[in-house]
Design a protein around this nucleic acid. Structure first.
Lengths: 221, 221
DNA sequence: AGATGTGAATGAGTTCACAGCT
DNA sequence: AGCTGTGAACTCATTCACATCT
C-alpha cells in the first residue's frame, strides 16, 4: 500500500489548481446524479487530460477502483479534505470600496468552505454600512474584529499604496493567510502565506492575443 | 541582426505574464527617475531572475546595450508595443452587479491602455445607473453599444448560468476578446480569444497553504 | 475486458555559463 | 571591466504505454 506523504511543499501550484478544477467538475457530476466516473469520462466532459487526472490524484493515494473508475462522492470528500475545504474558513475583507464589497459578496459561495464574516475600512463614510451579512467596521478595530470573528484569511482590497501596511496589520491581528488584490507586490512574513491576485494582468494578456484589427473591420463577416 | 519573429502563438503565457511584470517594474523605475537598468538590477529590486529577464526580452529582439544594460524609456515603449498597450482598448462590462461595477471602476487605470466605456445588464433595476463614467444600458442593446463605443474587449461578470449565453452575445456583437469572471467554463469561438479568471481558485489555493491551526492558537506570540 | 496507478519518454521552462560587444 | 544575448545543461511538467488489479 503506497500511501503517499503529501507534504505541502511537494505539491505544485499547477497540480493544486487542477485539483480545484477536478473538485468542481465532480460536484457538477454529483449534482447531475452521477455516482461513478472514470478519468477518461471526466477528461472528455471537462476538457482535461485523463493521464494527468490520474497522476494528480495518485500523489495523495489510490482512491480509484481499477477497471471501474472513481466513486464520485468519496472522491469529492477526499479532495475536500486534501484542499482543506472540509472546514469553514472565515474571511475578513480589508478595504470595502467597490472591489472589496464585490469580493465580500462573491467569495462567500463555495459550498460553505469560505465565509466572509467581516469587513473593515478606514474611510468613516463606509464604516457602519451593511454589506453581505455584516457591518463594516473601522480598520482601527481590526484586531478585535479578527479575534471576535475568528477570521483566518484576510483579503486585501485596498489601494496599492496601502497594501503593505494593511498586510502588516492583518498579520498583527492574527490572520493566517492573505489574498492580495492590490496591484502591487507585498513583502510577506514567512509564517503568513500571501497570494497576489493581479486582475489587470489578465486584461493585458488578453490584449496580446487579440486578433490585430484589420484596417476596416467594420464590415463584420 | 537576429531580429526575432515574435509569432503570437510562440510566446508562452508564463513569459507574457512576466513581460507585464517587467513593464510595471520599469514604470516604477521611470517614476523614480531611473534611466538605465541592468537585468541584475531589475532582478534584485523586484525579486526576479536576471537570466530570465534577458531570455524573455531576447525573444523579441535585442534592446539592451552590452556592458551597460537597458535604457528604461525605450524598453518601456518596446514592451508597450509588444503587449499592444500602446493603443487604447475600449472595454465593455456585461453584468453590472457588485463584481461588474467593481471591475468597471478598477480595470480602467492602466496608463490609459484600457478604458471601460460601457456596461450592460439585463436587470431593469440596474439599467440607467451611472457607474464610473457611463450609464448602464440593457443587454438587449449590446450590439448597438458595442458598435457605438467601439468596444473591443468584453468582460463577463454575470452568474455562471448566464456566462455562455452572454459570451455568444458578445461575439455576435463584434468584440474581439473576452475576459470571463463567471465561475464556469465557456466554450469559446476560435476567432474570439477567451480568458477565464477564477477568483475562487485563489482562495482555495491559499487555504491549502494555510498553516494548520494549532489546538489553541489564541496565545499569539 | 476495462480502468487505475506508475515508470519511462517526451516536452516545456528555467538556470547556467560564457562568447561577444560596449 | 561589465553586461547582453544565447546555446547547453538541467529541472520541472506532461504524456505515453503498460503492468496490475477488479
Amino acid at each position: 500500500m503506497p500511501a503517499k506523504p503529501p507534504l505541502h511543499t511537494d505539491v505544485s501550484t499547477l497540480t493544486l489548481n487542477r485539483l480545484c478544477l477536478y473538485l468542481r467538475s465532480l460536484r457538477r457530476l454529483q449534482a447531475d446524479g452521477v455516482t461513478r466516473v472514470s478519468s477518461q469520462d471526466l477528461a472528455r466532459r471537462f476538457n482535461l487530460s485523463a493521464a494527468q487526472i490520474r497522476k494528480d490524484l495518485a500523489q495523495f493515494g489510490a482512491f480509484g477502483i481499477r477497471g471501474v473508475g472513481y466513486d464520485v462522492i468519496p472522491l469529492i470528500a477526499r479532495l475536500d479534505s486534501i484542499l482543506r475545504l472540509d472546514r469553514r474558513h472565515p474571511v475578513i475583507v480589508v478595504g470595502m470600496g467597490n472591489l472589496g464589497s464585490a469580493l465580500a459578496c462573491y467569495l462567500g459561495f463555495n459550498h460553505g468552505s469560505f465565509e466572509v464574516v467581516a469587513g473593515v475600512d478606514n474611510d468613516p463614510e463606509r464604516v457602519g454600512r451593511e454589506v453581505g451579512g455584516f457591518k463594516v467596521e473601522h480598520t482601527d478595530h481590526l484586531e478585535r474584529v479578527v479575534r471576535e470573528t475568528g477570521a483566518e484569511i484576510g483579503v486585501l482590497a485596498v489601494p496599492a499604496h496601502a497594501a503593505q501596511q494593511n498586510y502588516d496589520l492583518l498579520v498583527a491581528a492574527g490572520v493566517r493567510g492573505v489574498l492580495n488584490f492590490a496591484p502591487t507586490r507585498v513583502q510577506p512574513v514567512p509564517a503568513v502565506p500571501l497570494k497576489d491576485v493581479d486582475l489587470r494582468i489578465h486584461l493585458e494578456e488578453l490584449a496580446y492575443f487579440l486578433p490585430p484589427s484589420g484596417p476596416e473591420a467594420a464590415t463584420g463577416g
